[in-house]
Every structure is written in C-alpha cells, then in structure tokens.
Design a protein around this nucleic acid. Structure first.
Length: 919
DNA sequence: CAGTGAGCGAGCTTCCGCTTGACTT
C-alpha cells in the first residue's frame, strides 16, 4: 500500500525552496509512510495540509475534545452503572479517578484516525498549546494507542517557517498540564453535579449551578437588585446661548459663586441624597423654580470670557480584537448577540478570511504585524504607521492561555473589505470590516486632539441670591486623526466641537436663550450580551469558546430572559438580559450558603492552584480533596444544608419593590407577629397604593413563590393565582399583584355574542390567555377554545372586542386559487404568520397585523415566498449537478486523492477494510 | 421550529470546555 507514489506534487514542492519540501524531494523515491498530524479544527487542518505535502504529512483533525465524563445516565457504561459514583462520573474514594467515555458522535472521527494511524510512520500531536489542548492530545494517545513514535508539536502561526520550527522542536506530552486540565474538569463536575440536585430539592427541578454560570447569573441578579434599590435624584441645570464674533455657542452653567454645579455622581444610588463628599463641599442642588429665579437675575447681556483653556490630548490606538472584545464590538456597533457574532466569525474563519476566532491573546503574529504595517502604509501613508519601537505589544490578560494570536484578517497580505470575493453575506462583510479596521488601527499612531474650554462669566443683579456665575463650553478639534482614520466613523473625526467661536480672555459676549433643564439620575443599566461578556472576561470567568454559550445556558434554564422575549413591552430594550424570579431565589440560596458559587474570586484562586499543578509544585488529589471532602468540603456542606434549610423560605421571593407588609411579615416569620404594627402598615400601604380601597389585599398573608411550574401567589398557604414564567421583578408591585389577584377571582371579560358563552381571562405558567366558555360549557372531552395574549399585551386594558379577535385565531382567510387549500393567519411560538400548504411566512411587526391581515395581502406574501423557494431549489439542483460532474471528471482524468479530511479518511478506511478482509 | 393552559409516577434532570454540523429566515 504505497499511496504516496501516485500523489501529485503539491504546489509548494514545485515552487519549493523550503526545507520541509526539500527533504521531501530527496526522499520521495524511498516513499516512507507519512506522519499523521492531528490538530483540533478541520479548517486548520485543511490550511496546514496546503503547506505540507500529503505524501509526507497527513494532516487530520479530531474536532475538539474526544472523551468526556458521562453527562447523563444513559451515557454510563453498563459495567459501572451500579457504582455509587457512576452518576458523578468521578470515583472520589479512588483519588478522584474520572470515568471517561467517548463523546457521542465522535466514533467515526476516532475510527478514521485509527485507520490513518495504521499506515503512518509517526504520530504528531499538534493540538492547541493550552491546558485543554494538552489534554486532548493525551486523550488521543489513550484512544489511538499508537505503536509508532509520538511527538507533541505546537505552532502559533500557520506558516511554513513556524511549522518547520515546531516540528524540529517537538516535546513529550506534558502530563502535569494534563493533570491541571483534569483537575479543572473534575472540580467543575463535582461542583455542578453536587449543587444542582440541592436546587432540585429546594427550589425547582431541572435547575443548575456551576462555577461559571452561577457567577454570571448572580451578576445579572445583583444588577437588577441594584436597580430596584435605586432611588432617583432630581436636579436642575441650565444652558445659555452666547453670540461670539464669528459664531454662537451654547454653554452650560458650571459654577455659582465659584462652587460647581451638582452632577449625577454627587448623589447616592440607594438614597437619592447628596453624598457626604458633595455635602461637605456645599454643592448646591437647585430645583427648577429655584434655578429659574436665579437665572432671571443674571445680567446675561453683559457676559465676559473669563478663560480659554487649550489642552492637547492623545488617544492611544485600540488593541487587536480577541473573542471577548469582538463580541462587545459586534454587540455595540452592529447590534449582534454573542452567538450571532460567533456564527459569523466561524464562517469567515472556515473560508479563510480571518484567523481563529476563539482566542484570549491580543497580540499579533509577526506575519500579521508585517502585513498590517504594509496595509496601513498603502492606505494612510507611512506617517500613520505606529512609530514606536516594534509593534505595540500588549500584556495578555490574567487568565489568558494564549494558544492563538489575536483575531485579524488571515494571510500575509490583508484583503480589503471591498476586495472580498462575492457571495459573502451582509453580516460577514460587516464583521470582517470591523476586524480589518480594528487590526489596522492597532498598528497606527495615536490620535491627537486639542480640547478647548471656554469659560464665560456672568454677573448677577443686585437682588439676586448669588454674585456671579460661570458658563462653560467644551469642544475637541482633531489635530492628527491617527488610528481614528481607520477605526472611527467620519462624524467622530469631524467633531462638532471644532466649531467654538474664536474668542480670547476678556472678550465681551451677549447671552440669551436660557433653558432650564431637569435632570434625573439613572439606575445602573441592565446587562446585555456585550456588557456581560466584558465583565466575565475581566473577572477571568469562562473561556473564549464559552462566553456565548453561558448566556444561552442561563436562558435555557429559565434564569434569564432577553428583553425581546417580552414582546412589544417598550420599557425594556430588546437586548437587555433580565433575571427570572427563579434566578432571584437561586441567587439567594447560593450567596447565603455557598458563596464560592457566586464569587468570581473562586475561579481566580482555582487558576492559581491549577498553575501550581501544571508546574508540578502541587498535587491534584490534595487540591480536590480540600475542595470536596471533609467537614468543610462541598459534599458535607450540601448534605448539611439540605437538612437544615426550609425550602419554602428560599422559594419565596422578597424584593424591595413589593408591598412592605409582605416583606415585614416575612422578616417576622417564626417570631411573634406584632398585630398592631401590621395593621398600621396595612392602612398606610392601601392609602399609598392609590387603589379605591374596595379590594384590599392582606399582604401580610400573601406570598410570591417560585416552583418547578413557574411562579405563583399564595394566600394563607393556599395557591390563589399563577404567574407567567416571564414575570419580572418589576411586576411584583402592589398594584400589579392586585390586578393578578382580582383577575384570578373574577376572570369574566364579557360575553361572546355568537355563542352566548362567557369570555374568560386567565393566567397559566405560559402567561395570560383568553378562553371561550367554561369547561362544562362543552360536551365531554372537548376542550374550550383558548388563545394566548400576544407578548407585551397588557392584561389590565384588554377589552372584550380584542379578546374575541384573539379567539378568532387561527383565522381562515380563504382558499388558494391554485391548490384549493386553506390560507390561514395565526400566532405561533416565533410570532405571527400566514400559512398555506406548509409554507409559513412570518409577519413583520408594525407592518402586518395578524388580527386584521386580508386574504390578498397574505396571498402576496405566500406567492413571493413560494417563488423564492422554487428558485432556491433549482439553484441547489444545478449546484449538485455541477459538483457531480466535477467529481466524475476528476476521477477519470487523474488519480488525484481528495485533500479534504473527510474524503481522504474515507478513502483510506476502505482500503484498510479490504486489507483486513484479505488478512 | 409554527401553541401550550396538568396534577397516575418512575426515571431523569445537572457541570465546563474543545470543536463543527445541517438547517433556514
């Protein structure tokens, strides 16, 4: 079996001055078995194979990890099923020995690699140079059981030189590094699989906790708590317009009698009062009328320029992108979620447009720096290139393992965004352009700006409450845009502040048009994908490959909602991340009894311990034992807590915006209730809630709790109403709860004139819905007709007319003139749609109304969609035929072996199978 | 991918990190 004999010369060999190829040329006649090189990513394998002649190096990929701890009961091998530790997948008693199983679906990959190894002269493991990569190499040797020499090679750049260097400097697998990875893996398993069952018992089934996800969940919950505790402060400010010699300027009132005006940061977030520091400085707080009377007493027509200050500032160029910053930039500039960013980047990577997109190393390779400087020079001139010594290298982040370089355009010359080959999607071009510009910017000179501040003094009239005030106007002029030319939009380069009037100290100005404005301090913003990833990265929690999936996991577990999921509710931005009530309950339990789960410090300390294990100065069993075993270990703590804590206490939701009597009675639970006080509190709350007083709820006997089936309201221990899963913290005010309770008591909206049956408004865990008639209005077995309210519809303002329209869904619009089949409009899980014969067309918000859409409009949408479908089908058929024709051509004209990993491997497998059968 | 609106109960759920796939709007 000497396949190599028939291989055509790879292009590099023909060009070949490179040593890798030279050696190949001299030994070609001997044609020894090639080496099997295994990397993690198929795309990377294909790129490397283009450099290495297949006759000497067969480059294959293992597609990530290959073995895992069994995730669920059905993944445990029968042999171990009855072991007490089988579900954990770690035998704690036997030095935390992990039970590894093949990852589901990786069987074919492994068998292909085994077949390739059979006629390979050696095995070169070239997985990433980090903990996980080292572990993958070790698992591969365990699975493949090679009998040929095994070498470990690492390269950080895919160039002939870098690969040759790596192959000349091979080493053995670093077992200490593998131990560090295994420790990380086992710890995460012990943490997650010990804590989650406690949550099932105490809060709700199916919940989860983990070293990473619980930190992320807690951050989102704590941000919401900070918002609920936030007390806004109000203060007034003012602007005036001054006529300069060449142009006017709008300036802001900055000082009153030399004391500066108050700012938002002078107020305490929790009390809304001035901070002690601001109070000490005697900073005045004006309300609107006070400030209005003050400015009325100013001699605005007689203003004077008190100072003109110019300051030169330099803005440094940004760092090249890494996974976290790419996700932030695409989030902030393009509005993408972390998942969408990564899907687009993956495509760009697979098609060879960018380097690897999962990295924590902000440094560029030498090849990249050279390419980048050439490109900057060509586009912006030599002066724009970074003028320091060498490239602006940046220290890698604390937790970084730096197996890859920064994310940048691929290759030794950068492709301009406008020179990308046709056929890329709009998202891909947008993300590529962003990466291209940011990479260029990172190698350019800083931007120089002149910031000018004009101070304008105005005297007060004799009877005024002050003597004199100062107004201030600031503007920036870009002196040298530097990197801004590559990485900022035009409007930033041309700052409007450039247009300050040309005045000097002492000039007289005439002011007018005073505007007094009211300001209100804003609570901290909710997280979105970008800001959460930013914080997680700074905390060193999670890895580039997991940032996007952490958010998805929190959503899948019901801990977090996206603002978008709430529908038309305008008060919440669509990209905001909001905690569910369950998240509040879990956060309370974890932070009270297992603070290491919500504390990012834990991961930081773990990383230190892992570094020691990797360095050989610490031992893995010892570390795991002190984490899990003993009196203070996790196992005993969880067991103890399970016995000690009362589930109903932790399932109850208590937030600062809820009725005060509810909070008070919870605080007193277990103690004697002071009846007089409770009564007083009740009286005060009903007057403050502004309700008519007829339907007073005894909040001291009312509780909001969460369960496996969603949140609900309980009174005197009896369930009186269920709340939608999408209930937010904001929904738990007295007024909102009152509406829910009233609805549960009296759900009748009106009567359906057609059937005479009552129309009921009810709530389930899926949210509010309307129902036609009661169960006993229908003959045995038939369920009442039901329809969900649309997301964001307000229960309080729902009318009988709208309810009837909702009940008309799914609505029959007519029959298709060609097929004779029905055309219907309805609301589905993904929004409103029209459908005919399995062709679904989503309706656009604000354009179509599913309750009103006509047959003609629906037909237009459906016909267009069916036409597009047809065109696509034809295109695909054409493509398929083309590919098949090419294959045929190749097969007959030359004995070329396909270079892709899949094709090569399957060809190989066939031959080995034949050999086996002969033997 | 195109609505759900409980209540038998046994068995299951769950972690983090590495990689892509096969489908569309």
């Amino acid at each position: 079996m000497r396949l190599a004999l028939f291989l055509p010369s790879p292009p590099l060999l023909r060009r070949g001055r490179h040593p890798l190829c030279a050696r190949q040329a001299t030994t070609a006649s001997a044609a020894p078995d090639p080496a099997l090189v295994i990397v993690e990513s198929p795309a990377k394998a294909a790129t490397i194979q283009k450099i290495l002649p297949e006759s000497r190096y067969r480059v294959r990929s293992c597609v990530g990890h290959v073995r895992e701890l069994p995730g669920s009961a059905k993944r445990i091998p029968a042999k171990y099923k009855r072991e007490p530790w089988a579900k954990l997948g770690v035998d704690v008693a036997d030095d935390f020995r992990p039970l590894y199983v093949l990852i589901a679906g990786k069987q074919t990959i492994i068998s292909h690699l085994k077949a390739d190894l059979k006629n390979s002269a050696e095995l070169i493991l070239a997985t990433d140079e980090d903990r996980e990569g080292e572990a993958i190499s070790w698992h591969l040797t365990e699975l493949l059981k090679p009998t040929v020499p095994v070498r470990r090679a690492v390269f950080h750049e895919i160039t002939p030189d870098a690969i040759e260097f790596a192959f000349r400097n091979c080493r053995d697998i670093d077992l200490n590094l593998v131990h560090a990875q295994e420790t990380r893996r086992v710890l995460d398993r012990l943490a997650g699989y010990t804590m989650s069952p406690l949550l099932w018992k105490k809060i709700a089934k199916g919940l989860s906790a983990g070293r990473v996800q619980s930190v992320a969940m807690s951050a989102i919950v704590r941000r919401e708590l900070a918002r609920l505790a936030f007390v806004p402060a109000r203060y007034a400010g003012c602007t005036a317009r001054f006529e300069g010699p060449d142009r006017p300027v709008v300036a802001t009132l900055s000082t009153v009698d030399a004391v500066r005006m108050v700012r938002g940061s002078d107020f305490d977030d929790h009390t809304g009062a001035l901070t002690a520091r601001a109070t000490a400085k005697n900073i005045p707080v004006f309300d609107r009328p006070a400030l209005e009377s003050l400015v009325a007493a100013l001699e605005l027509a007689d203003a004077r320029v008190a100072a003109v200050d110019k300051k030169r500032t330099t803005r440094s160029p940004p760092r090249p992108l890494i996974t976290s910053t790419l996700q932030q930039e695409c989030g902030n500039k393009l509005g993408f979620g972390a998942g969408r960013t990564m899907r687009v980047a993956q495509k760009l990577y697979e098609n060879g447009h960018i380097t690897y997109m999962r990295t924590d190393n902000p440094n560029l390779s030498d090849q990249a720096v050279a390419a980048c400087r050439t490109c900057v020079e060509a586009l912006y001139g030599k002066k724009a290139v970074w003028d320091g010594k060498g490239p602006p290298r940046v220290p890698k982040p604390k937790a970084a393992q730096a197996a890859h370089e920064a994310i940048r355009p691929a290759g030794s010359t950068f492709t301009l965004p406008e020179d990308l080959p046709p056929g890329l999607e709009r998202d891909e071009i947008a993300v590529y352009s962003l990466i291209f510009k940011r990479t260029l910017a990172s190698q350019m000179v800083g931007a120089k700006l002149d910031q000018t501040t004009i101070k304008i003094q105005v005297q007060a009239k004799g009877d005024a409450p002050c003597r004199k005030v100062e107004f201030k106007a600031t503007g920036s002029v870009v002196v040298d845009p530097g990197f801004l030319r590559a990485y900022q939009s035009e409007d930033v380069v041309q700052t409007p502040g450039a247009f300050l009037p040309s005045v000097v100290e002492g000039d007289k100005l005439v002011g007018s048009n005073v505007a007094v404005l009211e300001h209100e301090t804003k609570p901290p913003a909710r997280y979105n994908d970008a800001s959460l990833v930013k914080d997680l990265e700074e905390l060193g929690v999670g890895r580039p490959s997991t940032y996007a999936s952490i958010i998805e996991k929190l959503i899948a577990r019901g801990y977090v909602f996206r603002g978008r999921m709430l529908g038309e509710n305008k008060s919440v931005p669509p990209r905001a991340l909001l905690p569910s009530l369950t998240a509040f309950a879990v956060e309370k339990l974890l932070s009270k009894h297992f603070s290491s789960f919500v504390d990012a410090e834990f991961t930081a300390k773990m990383e230190e311990a892992l570094d020691e294990i990797a360095g050989g100065s610490a031992e893995r069993t010892h570390y795991l034992r002190q984490y899990y075993c003993g009196e203070d270990g996790l196992a005993a703590s969880v067991e103890r807590t399970e016995k000690e804590i009362d589930a109903s206490v932790f399932r109850q939701i208590l937030l600062p915006n809820m009725p005060p009597e509810m909070l008070a009675s919870a605080a007193k639970a277990g103690k004697k209730v002071d009846k007089a006080k409770t009564a007083k509190a009740r009286a005060s709350s009903s007057s403050s809630s502004g309700s008519d007083g007829e339907s007073e709820t005894d909040w001291s006997n009312t509780k909001v709790l969460v369960s496996s089936y969603g949140p609900y309201v309980e009174q005197n221990g009896v369930v009186v109403a269920s709340l939608p899963k999408l209930t937010l913290a904001d929904d738990l005010t007295a007024d909102r709860l009152e509406t829910v309770l009233q609805l549960a008591q009296d759900p009748e909206l009106g009567t359906d004139p057609k059937s005479g049956m009552p129309v009921l408004l009810k709530t389930s865990r899926y949210g509010p819905y309307v129902q036609l008639g009661r169960e006993n209005d229908y003959a045995g077995g038939t369920k009442p007709k039901r329809s969900s309210l649309f997301p964001g519809m307000d229960v309080g303002t729902l009318t009988i007319d709208l309810a009837l329209k909702l009940l008309s869904l799914p609505r029959l619009l007519g029959t298709h003139p060609k097929s004779g089949n029905e055309v219907r409009a309805a609301m589905g899980p993904y929004g409103p749609y029209v459908v005919h014969d399995g062709t679904y067309v989503s309706l656009k918000k604000d354009v179509h109304n599913v309750l009103e859409i006509s047959f003609d409009e629906a037909m237009e949408l459906i016909s267009a969609s069916e036409y597009r479908k047809e065109v696509r089908r034809e295109k695909q058929a054409l493509k398929k035929a083309e590919v098949q024709a090419k294959k045929k051509e190749k097969g007959t004209s030359s004995p070329k072996v396909k270079r892709s990993a899949k094709g090569g491997a399957s060809a190989k497998r066939k031959t080995t199978a034949k050999q086996k059968s002969v033997a």
